[in-house]
Design a binder for these strands. Structure first.
Lengths: 146, 146
DNA sequence: CTGTATCCTTAGGGATACTG
DNA sequence: CAGTATCCCTAAGGATACAG
């Protein structure tokens, strides 16, 4: 995305142009909250993303520095996706979306309800805990480790 | 948007389906931060939204209860758009986007730089101040009243 | 001023087959 | 497992004209 292609240089518009499509934030959610790391795991999510779209979005997110892609040392045919710093910095946004959704339609099913509870009690601490969890390279979803 | 049409009932997916297009959040920004209230003001924004798209998004946002539309008492040919409660509840999201953008490319131009400064100093207070400002029906953009 | 209506183009996306 | 490559369709969007 070159700057000349942006509709404007408004800082609210900017993230919309980078991750403002209907799929990117779901991939980021999968990594950040669901603990997913691989193509096949993203493919298995409820929203049923198509293979070509997933492929395209992973490439775009990597190109924009939101995620990182590394070969799995144990299994060379496998790739591991993780959040780069700008991706980790999107976690506050995910949490606020969760809080907003909960206000519109209160969430009662686990593990999301637990996440909402933690977010409402101490948003900053939750964000920090998730970021630390991810940076440590844990494989289980954060919410299952509590 | 009927629930049966949603790709999933994930609370992160929900806002993406309601306001996750490339234009809705810009209209909400115009109302919340730029102090705009009318069709022609939205039309004049930097991103150059088309008339049919603007018309469509205003109707959709109203239908989903995000914004309210009222006839101007002083000028009957004019309509005034404002944020309903779910729209006001999106302000934390806007602030997070601002903070994220600033981290990617530090903002140096006013009035956005001032807004970032306030957000970093006390996010909750800024959100509350903007919401109160809007609910009071002030016509000047919040940031110009400081 | 606040929209509709229309025409047309393009980007996004679903389905499926195929490959290293 | 992790993708590419097609094919095809639809929704999104730009441009412009017109209307109350």
């Amino acid at each position: 995305m070159r700057k000349s292609e942006l509709r404007s240089d408004c800082p609210i518009n900017y993230p919309l142009e980078i991750i403002g499509d209907k799929w990117s934030l779901l991939i980021i959610r999968d990594i950040a909250i669901s603990g997913k790391t691989s193509y096949s795991e993203f493919l298995a999510s409820d929203e049923k993303i198509a293979t070509n779209i997933l492929s395209n979005r992973l490439a775009m997110l990597e190109e924009n520095g939101i995620i990182s892609k590394k070969q799995d040392e144990a299994n060379k045919a496998r790739f591991i996706y993780s959040l780069a710093q700008p991706g980790l910095d999107l976690i506050p946004l995910l949490i606020d979306m969760l809080i907003w959704s909960n206000k519109q339609h209160p969430i009662k099913t686990e593990p999301d309800a637990l996440l909402v509870k933690m977010a409402l009690e101490n948003r900053l601490q939750l964000i920090d805990t998730i970021q630390t969890h991810l940076q440590a390279g844990n494989k289980k979803p954060f919410v299952l480790t509590i």
